[in-house]
Amino acid sequence: MTTSIIGFDSAWTDQVKAPGAVSIIRVVEGRPTEFVPPRLASFGQALTIIEAERRQFDRCFVALDQPTIVPNATGSRPVDKVAGSLISWVGGGVQPANRSKKGMFDDDAPVWAFKNALGATEDPEGARDAESGVFIAEVFPALALPSLAAEFCGRLMVPRYNPGRRKTFRIEHWSAVLKCVGAAGEAYGVIGLLHWCETHRLIETPTKSDQDLLDGVLCALIGYIWLFQPRDQSVMIGDLEAGYMIGPAIEEARRRLQTAAEARGVRHG
């Protein structure tokens, strides 16, 4: 069986000057065979890339860094609150998703047209066992980092690696995230991922687009872990009605997410 895992950091809105990024991990019979370096892409360009992949692979899995189910008119989804419990502990924040956000989640937001055109099945658990088909799932790179590297899992230990926020950006954090992602790529046998990370670390003055490329890689890596690593190494928070996220979750990060989910009556596992 062949699988193409497409990581897509959509950037949430479809702005020509601020596109998202797509990266791909290709897998044959459970073994990674090719890492396709990230490239900047709009929603339309991402669709074109995915269409090309689905013609060549039995199963395609789109790991999208954007809420895919947003039924609430205002406020935030239950899953946002659960994710926020961990993210706030490490020192970050979660942007609440609701339908009042124009250009992001209102009826005319590009994410809905993207999903409709893609025609993918939204069933993360089913995707793990499927031998064919196109699937989509919501992922969140910031939620994955505390489980990918112990140095990011501690009180106020969130890496400040967004170059778009110059006041808080730290180049050593940028380097640490790339080192973490490269090490994960090596551990899982994703050939070429470490080299890309080492090359990306050489950028002296990273831009927001450089971070989008990195997050696209993280999305693909999260998708790979979900599909091919033991299920107890990942978690699905929430559900297909109120919204959800999937991603790696181990040790302290997993415990905090489980505690928060149980306190709020949010499904997890």
Score class of each variant (00 low, 15 high):
139 V>Y: 10
110 P>D: 06
199 T>M: 06
204 E>T: 08
191 I>S: 15
178 L>R: 03
222 I>Y: 00
190 V>T: 10
179 K>E: 14
209 S>G: 14
142 A>S: 15
160 R>G: 04
221 L>H: 01
185 G>Y: 08
207 T>N: 00
155 R>I: 14
219 C>D: 02
155 R>T: 15
181 V>F: 10
176 A>D: 06
109 A>P: 05
184 A>K: 10
216 G>H: 02
156 L>Y: 14
200 H>L: 09
121 T>K: 10
137 A>Q: 09
214 L>N: 00
179 K>R: 14
174 W>M: 05
220 A>L: 03
107 D>I: 06
161 Y>D: 09
122 E>S: 07
111 V>Q: 01
141 P>I: 05
159 P>Y: 05
157 M>T: 15
166 R>W: 12
121 T>V: 15
140 F>S: 02
138 E>A: 09
110 P>N: 06
181 V>A: 11
135 F>C: 04
142 A>R: 02
205 T>D: 11
124 P>G: 10
194 L>G: 05
216 G>N: 00
173 H>E: 14
107 D>H: 12
188 Y>T: 03
177 V>R: 04
162 N>T: 10
199 T>D: 11
171 I>L: 09
162 N>C: 12
153 C>G: 04
215 D>N: 08
207 T>K: 02
161 Y>V: 09
176 A>M: 09
192 G>I: 09
134 V>I: 12
138 E>C: 09
139 V>F: 12
157 M>E: 14
136 I>P: 01
199 T>V: 03
197 C>W: 03
209 S>K: 14
120 A>S: 11
117 A>Y: 11
150 A>G: 07
119 G>Q: 15
187 A>W: 07
143 L>K: 04
125 E>P: 04
168 T>V: 11
173 H>R: 07
211 Q>C: 05
169 F>T: 02
110 P>E: 04
153 C>D: 13
159 P>V: 14
128 R>P: 05
205 T>S: 05
119 G>P: 12
